[in-house]
């Protein structure tokens, strides 16, 4: 990582050409979002104008109200926030417990559990989806928050991620706390968690973004409109708005906004967690 920090020094014309190519590429990657942003404020006439208008002729805020009129957008938003927070909270707590037990305690059966946990990562959700749907239906949890959240609690990835961070906390620190008469739960919450705060925050962010965009399971398990999450509601907006693109863009903008804020402030952490999991395996 030291390389990124190094001063630029003298740039040759070759470096400038590289920069120009990369800049055009970056613009292509961002263009859909720029288009979405401007289009959310366009009138229907602007959308249909030829040649296409990049910037709206008048800034029209009524598209946002139309989203609320066409679909129960606020309800979807609330459902997404609630289920994502519950899912993330549960996954993180369970993973912190497991990661502490796996890295800092000695007991038999640890290897067996690790193998078990890792093997669950190799089975794609599409394999477990059908029986899970039948189980959840048989106990009558379709169209409930529990039905959306509980089957999506898979902790293998976050547990392995946190294990990586917890291993770097020195054993001496824990032994010292033990000598001071601290119990294991006290050590976990007073010594390990504060020392791995950044790591837990990273894992939380990563898990939350995953939960926020979760699509297949909520699609299967919800039939009633009032339990749809944001991605499901937006899928149906395509037909329900009869392709009024400016309204679709307003909805997309509102759905992306929280992700964008997280992204701007925490891009470094997200990149770090991807490289950690990628380089390790």
């Amino acid at each position: 990582m030291t390389k990124t920090k190094s001063k630029l020094g003298k740039l040759t014309w070759k470096n400038w050409i590289l920069f120009a190519i990369l800049f055009v590429g970056a613009f292509t990657m961002l263009f859909p979002f720029v288009w979405m942003f401007f289009s959310a404020f366009k009138t229907k006439a602007d959308v249909y104008s030829y040649p296409p208008r990049w910037v709206p002729s008048t800034w029209d805020f009524s598209n946002f109200r139309k989203v609320f009129d066409m679909i129960p957008f606020l309800r979807y938003y609330w459902n997404s926030i609630l289920t994502s927070v519950l899912q993330t909270g549960l996954i993180i707590i369970i993973s912190v417990f497991a990661a502490y037990a796996l890295t800092k305690l000695r007991y038999p059966g640890k290897k067996l559990f690790s193998t078990f946990l890792i093997s669950s990562m190799f089975v794609p959700t599409v394999v477990t989806m059908i029986p899970l749907y039948l189980i959840v239906s048989s106990v009558g949890l379709n169209d409930t928050y529990a039905g959306i959240v509980l089957p999506q609690i898979s902790t293998a990835f976050t547990t392995m991620l946190l294990c990586g961070f917890f291993e770097s906390i020195p054993r001496d620190l824990i032994d010292a706390a033990r000598l001071d008469g601290c119990g294991h739960m006290r050590i976990l919450f007073r010594v390990v968690v504060p020392n791995a705060g950044g790591a837990i925050a990273t894992a939380t962010l990563f898990t939350f973004l995953g939960a926020w965009k979760s699509y297949t399971w909520p699609l299967i398990i919800t039939t009633k409109t009032e339990y749809r999450t944001l991605p499901i509601g937006m899928k149906y907006l395509v037909t329900e708005s009869s392709s009024e693109y400016q309204v679709m863009m307003a909805a997309a903008l509102m759905a992306i906004l929280p992700v964008l804020i997280v992204f701007i402030f925490a891009e470094k952490q997200l990149v770090r967690s991807i490289t950690l999991t990628g380089l390790k395996s």
């Binding site: 970056a26 961002l30 965009k213 899928k235 395509v238 693109y245 863009m249 997280v262 992204f263 997200l270």
Partner: peptide
């Protein structure tokens, strides 16, 4: 960050843009 941005955005939201 520009190259990374499409990764974090919910697929459904970006699909809506591309449908257009």
């Amino acid at each position: 960050a520009s190259y990374f941005a499409p990764v974090v955005v919910p697929i459904v939201a970006s699909s809506l843009i591309w449908i257009w």
